[in-house]
Design a binder for these strands. Structure first.
Length: 208
DNA sequence: TAGGCCATCTGGTCCT
DNA sequence: AGGACCAGATGGCCTA
């Protein structure tokens, strides 16, 4: 957490080469009471002086209240900017672990999230079905070939094959009409190898 | 040119 | 009080 925000000040001007941030900070600094302890007069202070100072202080705080607010706003903007950058970094990391598309087009944010959702669902279904089959027949578990997972470009291609006999169930694309949020009915699981893939390969922005 | 996507700003709310 | 999070507003950029 500290590492995230420790350099906020050093980066605060990356997007705004010059803002009045410095100005407001400078004026705030000049108005800061922090410097007063070292500058207190050694001579005894007349009793009436605090009243005077209080009055002047009030007037100055009226004047600086806007500066303080502005400074606070600028800092909040900076944090918000950083927060969104972190969010985008996380999305980029997510894009990095998802199968790539051939045209190298960068997935939008919503596409990335939906794609990841489908992808996770497909993988978890793969594991589930594999466990079921292994328990039933003693066959080696179904494994999605790395070529298939890594090559999102050709959902219907032969590159997408399964490492067990189940791969012969259907060669025609069985598009998964249902979203991962409402996975296919149990009877559809015989098509899982395609469903799972097309569930996320077949993802089309706006269709989901 | 309209529409989609994005980055940023902003004010509000909640939490520590 | 200050920070995190959120959602709305706004303007810029890109593409069909």
């Amino acid at each position: 957490m500290d590492s995230v925000y420790s350099d906020i000040d050093s980066n605060s001007c990356d997007f705004f080469p010059h803002t009045d941030d410095e100005d407001s900070r400078a004026s705030l600094r000049s108005a800061s009471p922090d410097s007063s302890p070292l500058c207190q007069p050694r001579s005894p202070v007349p009793e009436r002086q605090p009243e005077k100072k209080r009055r002047r202080g009030r007037a100055r705080s009226e004047a600086t209240v806007q500066v303080v607010k502005k400074n606070r706003r600028l800092k909040a903007n900076d944090r918000e900017r950083n927060r969104m950058h972190n969010l985008n970094d996380a999305l980029d990391a997510l894009r990095g672990v998802l199968p790539a598309f051939p045209d190298e087009t960068k997935l939008t944010k919503i596409e990335t999230l939906r794609f990841a959702h489908n992808y996770i669902w497909a993988l978890s279904e793969t594991i589930r079905i594999a466990d079921l089959q292994a328990g039933k027949t003693g066959d080696p578990p179904l494994l999605l070939s790395p070529a298939c997972l890594g090559d999102a470009s050709s959902p219907g291609s032969d590159a997408c094959s399964w490492s067990s006999s189940a791969s012969s169930s259907s060669s025609s694309p069985a598009y998964c009409a249902s979203s991962p949020g409402s996975p296919a009915a149990p009877e559809d699981y015989s098509y899982l190898q395609q469903d799972a893939l097309y569930g996320f390969h077949g993802f089309v922005p706006g269709i989901y």
